[in-house]
Design a protein around this nucleic acid. Structure first.
Length: 196
DNA sequence: AACGAAGTCAACCGCTAATTT
DNA sequence: GAAATTAGCGGTTGACTTCGT
């Protein structure tokens, strides 16, 4: 990507692909001062970039323990299950896959999995059409809570609490798997499932 | 070999939420 | 409590690569 020149009064920021030199500057600065206040980081590290761009580069590429390369079958399976449960909440899904970023998972979903799903759905729908009068399956909060076994008090469902995984281990997905086992009906698609 | 189509993925954009002043 | 600033998220874009003809 070629840098754009947007106006002459404002200082023109670099845009597009990062150079190895920029990466090094950013990494070095964060190593010493930590990853806080991205605007300041961009300035102090001598990067002609906006803070937002620095943050993104760090989180998606430079951060330690980033896993790069092919998504394994186990990871793919996890993504599929979590997406079925959480929808396009990429950061939450990424949170369950150590070393993977939300951007990477989003890209992987858009380029690989969404097609897979579409094809699968087509095949399934052709093979087994649901009975005319069968209503879509609606999960209640009780279903969800029961499946997770978290024991949230009745009438006090908190969606944020439900999706808060911070207290669990990276692969502590038993409750998710239990939950997903509930909708084994082959014709059931995520469009037909909703939590009310 | 050449060219267009399709696929991939890093980076940007716009917006909202959270935090700080 | 209000305004300003910062962080984070998801959708989208566009350059580059790969594939098919």
């Amino acid at each position: 990507m070629a840098p754009k020149n947007e106006g002459s009064a404002k200082k023109v920021m670099n845009k597009g692909a990062w150079t190895a030199e920029e990466d090094q500057k950013l990494s070095q600065y964060i190593e010493i001062h930590g990853a806080k206040r991205w605007k300041t980081i961009a300035l102090k590290a001598g990067l002609n970039r906006c803070g937002k761009s620095c943050r993104l580069r760090w989180l998606n590429y430079l951060r330690p323990n980033i896993k790069r390369g092919n998504i394994s079958d186990a990871e793919e399976d996890l993504i599929l299950r979590l997406h079925k449960l959480l929808g396009n909440r990429w950061s939450l899904i990424a949170g369950r896959l150590p070393g993977r970023t939300d951007n990477e998972i989003k890209n992987y979903w858009n380029s690989h999995l969404s097609k897979k799903i579409n094809n699968k759905e087509k095949t399934v729908l052709e093979a087994s059409t649901p009975p005319e009068n069968m209503p879509p399956k609606i999960y209640t909060r009780t279903d969800v809570e029961g499946a997770r076994g978290a024991g949230t008090s009745e009438g006090n469902f908190d969606i944020n609490e439900f999706f808060d995984f911070t207290a669990e281990g990276s692969y502590g997905l038993d409750w998710v798997n239990k939950f997903l086992e509930l909708d084994e009906d082959p014709w059931l698609t995520d469009k037909k499932v909703s939590i009310v």
